[in-house]
Design a protein around this nucleic acid. Structure first.
Lengths: 339, 339
DNA sequence: TTGTAAGCGTTATCAG
DNA sequence: CTGATAACGCTTACAA
């Protein structure tokens, strides 16, 4: 494995010059640059990044913490991050936390030990205090996350508003008994989506009764179980808004299991617009987040942090969109109720 | 940021001793070890991994190349890898190739530049020659891949046999016109699965006609398109075996689109047992690969390579399983035809 | 514009 | 069992 001194020797220059050719080519005379490049070629020299990183205490690599790599929501965000990173000479490495808080915490080690220069956390589960503490020491950005006190840059959508929109869509289709299967309440996102649901209900003079609200875990299984439960009551909802597509699909399958037809007997709206949402039968009406754009924006913010630029705005709320497909029954109806 | 020399000074020992406490605690007297640990604690010292890695020319990190992080097949394999890696003090970083050959090739840089010690490639697209060349220089292992010449350790299932099993299952349900939507033929896996399909057909005296075979790309869209095409012919298959669940789901939706009921009018079998296979309507009959186990095994093999142990066996074929659900119609039939 | 030389923080070798 | 010291390969003042 040839080293820089080998190249220097062959080119008849000093290692300093070789280093300059590699990192500041403009500060070197074309003719010597030529010689050096030729030597590099001849020896098939590759800089030892371990040495370079050590010397410069930086890696040009960022870490993305993904709760669950099999969730298309996250993989699309990662796509946006990678694009922006590549354009700026950064590498992206992913770490799957498997939704384990401990893994999330453990990944700070990568930063502490300087394996990566910065980190983007997708839907972090760590408490706000801990996050702020980390952010105090290392460049981090959050995505699909929301903070009470936006001291750390984060990228998100308006979860309250989008939830309101989703719920209102069901109400305008004539439903009065709209149920909600929420995400876990320890997550601010879940609380926000719940809040949006409540807002919409109240706005239309409906009472968001406890018997129609269930706290799920964003998973298929929890959607399934809670729907079985909701449908086993004396009074049964005619519509349900689930805070994730996985839960919405679970809910639909539970309804089918009980002979309740979707969307005829039960209208369903999900959240996320995962890849499977359009493939499922019935196709899912859902809220789409601008995932790619969210990834890009997060990386832009992280780049600013890495370059020591000031970040004037920490709260980045991007626009979402209600995508109407078949599960809500809108395509069966002639028209919606007025707003 | 305290360094080792700070700890040494505080503990009244040399840096060599501190280093020993950290890496070979048994070679140090308990009492001095105590002192050192206390100093470490007091200073909240964290070793600088960049320096350590540089010095030792190793990172204790491996890279997993994933074609598509949103494919549950891969995420489960990664789960197995991570488990095995963690037990052996290794970190796992992922890199999404997005199915781009160029990204796959580019990721060799991580190895060249020593950012990681080794690599596991999931379903690599690079040609065998290139792979062997890489393997000659760096520790790599392949998973869900198959080589003509098994010079590189790889973990796989018996794609021919499992395909045969899937096709035969349809034949035993009484189908004679069984179509096959394959993966791309540049991939050996696809060719193997196609071979299995052919074997089963011939074994039962059926002619695997070209008009019933289509080359897809493992994607939902390709399954959808090819099924539309298959069903638009004069003679129409009554069963289809798709080489991936994504394609099988696409095929089912295409059939539905044309008013062809699954499984009543068309029996479908997929491959992979992705998470959605059981959630879909109808639930998918499919071949399940022991994904977690495959991940584990790949990491075991990579560990051997990293430790310089000899690998006696390079070909690792794990057992698969046919999972019978609703899409094949077996649950409607009284009994299967004899083998 | 180029070269010299001093580190970066850790580990490994060799004495003691 | 412990300490002194020389690397590891690269970058970067500083000097020429």
């Amino acid at each position: 494995m040839p080293k820089m001194s080998d190249v220097a020797k062959l080119a008849g220059v000093s290692t300093a010059t070789v280093s300059r050719v590699l990192r500041n080519p403009d500060t070197v005379t074309p003719s010597t640059k030529e010689k050096v490049l030729e030597a590099i070629n001849q020896l098939n020299y590759q800089p030892n990044m371990l040495a370079r990183h050590f010397r410069r205490t930086e890696t040009n690599t960022i870490l993305v913490l993904v709760p669950n790599i099999s969730n298309t929501v996250f993989s699309e965000i990662v796509g946006g991050i990678e694009e922006e990173a590549a354009q700026n000479g950064y590498r992206v490495l992913l770490r799957n936390t498997n939704n384990q808080l401990e893994n999330e915490y453990a990944s700070i080690e990568h930063l502490k030990q300087r394996q990566v220069d910065g980190m983007i956390m997708l839907s972090p589960k760590l408490d706000e205090e801990t996050l702020i503490e980390i952010s105090h020491q290392y460049p981090i950005v959050l995505a699909t996350a929301h903070l009470e006190t936006p001291t750390i840059p984060f990228v998100s959508i308006d979860n309250v508003g989008s939830s309101e929109k989703a719920t209102e869509h069901l109400i305008r289709l004539g439903h009065r008994w709209v149920a909600h299967i929420s995400g876990p309440m320890y997550s601010l996102i879940s609380r926000n989506r719940y809040e949006g649901y409540q807002n919409a209900m109240k706005k239309h003079g409906l009472n968001p009764e406890d018997k129609f609200v269930r706290e799920g875990e964003f998973t298929y299984e929890s959607g399934y179980e809670h729907m079985l439960d909701l449908l086993s009551q004396k009074e049964v909802p005619t519509a349900v808004y689930a805070a994730s597509d996985d839960m919405a699909i679970g809910a639909i399958n539970a309804a089918n299991e009980l002979g309740v037809k979707v969307p005829e007997d039960l209208a369903v709206v999900g959240f996320d617009n995962i890849k499977f949402a359009s493939m499922f039968n019935p196709s899912l009406t859902t809220i789409a987040q601008p995932l790619h754009g969210m990834g890009q924006r997060s990386m832009e913010l992280l780049l600013k942090k890495l370059n020591g630029e000031a970040i004037s705005q920490t709260e980045h709320v991007l626009p979402d969109k209600l995508i109407i497909r078949n599960s809500c029954g809108a395509k069966h109806k002639e028209k919606l109720l007025p707003m």
